[in-house]
Simulated assay, not measured.
Amino acid sequence: MEWQRAFHLTRLHLEEIGGELPTEPGIVVHRGKDLGRWVRAQRLGWEKLTGVQQWMCEQVLGIEPVREDEKPKPRTSQAQKWAMHLTAARQL
């Protein structure tokens, strides 16, 4: 239900307002929904969308999956940070 609402609000933004597709969070908020945050989430989570949702995003809204060079770097876990610090300390 939430996905459909966000899709509909984004479509309204594009059709009624004639706006551009928001790609960054916080720039376009329509009826309390951050459209840029939603668009970004669809691009980053493309493989989690159903085939129909992917088609709707691509054909109706013009949303495409995120490219490899746009993907955020994976977070470093606390254990990985400790290991890096330990390695650095041992080199001193």
Rank of each mutant, 00 (worst) to 15 (best):
Q54H: 00
Q42K: 10
E64A: 11
R31S: 08
W38F: 06
R37E: 04
E58A: 10
V60A: 13
H30W: 15
Q53H: 04
G26L: 07
P72N: 05
L21T: 11
P74C: 00
M56Y: 12
M56S: 05
P65T: 12
G62L: 10
Q53N: 05
P74Q: 02
Q53V: 03
R43W: 13
Q53C: 04
A79T: 09
K73F: 14
I27Y: 06
G26V: 11
G45A: 01
L9M: 14
L35C: 01
E15P: 00
L9C: 12
L9W: 02
G36E: 05
M84Y: 08
T50I: 01
P65K: 11
H30C: 14
K73E: 13
V66P: 09
P22I: 04
L44N: 04
V66T: 02
K73Q: 03
W3R: 07
G19C: 01
V39K: 03
R75D: 15
Q54K: 11
E24W: 01
W55F: 14
E70Q: 14
W38G: 08
K73V: 09
L21I: 11
M84I: 03
P72L: 03
P72G: 01
G36N: 09
R90C: 04
L9G: 07
D69C: 04
A83N: 06
R37T: 02
A6Y: 00
L49S: 10
A89R: 12
P72S: 09
T87G: 03
M56E: 10
L21F: 06
L21P: 14
V29C: 03
R43D: 13
P22T: 02
T50N: 06
M84T: 10
R75N: 13
D69N: 08
R90V: 08
W82N: 13
H13T: 13
G26I: 00
H8C: 15
Q54I: 11
K73T: 00
R37A: 05
E47S: 00
L86D: 00
G45W: 05
R31G: 00
F7T: 04
V60Q: 02
E64N: 04
I17Q: 12
W82H: 14
K73N: 12
R67D: 15
E2K: 04
V29P: 11
K48E: 10
L12H: 14
Q4I: 04
V52N: 06
W55Y: 02
W46V: 03
S77N: 12
E70T: 06
A88H: 10
P25M: 01
R67Y: 15
S77E: 05
V29W: 06
E70N: 05
E58N: 14
E20Q: 08
P65A: 08
R43G: 05
L61P: 12
V29S: 09
E24A: 12
R37P: 11
E58Y: 10
G32L: 02
E20S: 03
W3S: 00
I17C: 09
I63D: 00
T10F: 04
Q4F: 00
L14K: 13
H85F: 08
E20D: 02
R75F: 09
A89I: 09
L14P: 01
E24L: 12
E64L: 12
P25K: 10
T76E: 08
R11S: 14
Q54F: 00
Q4C: 01
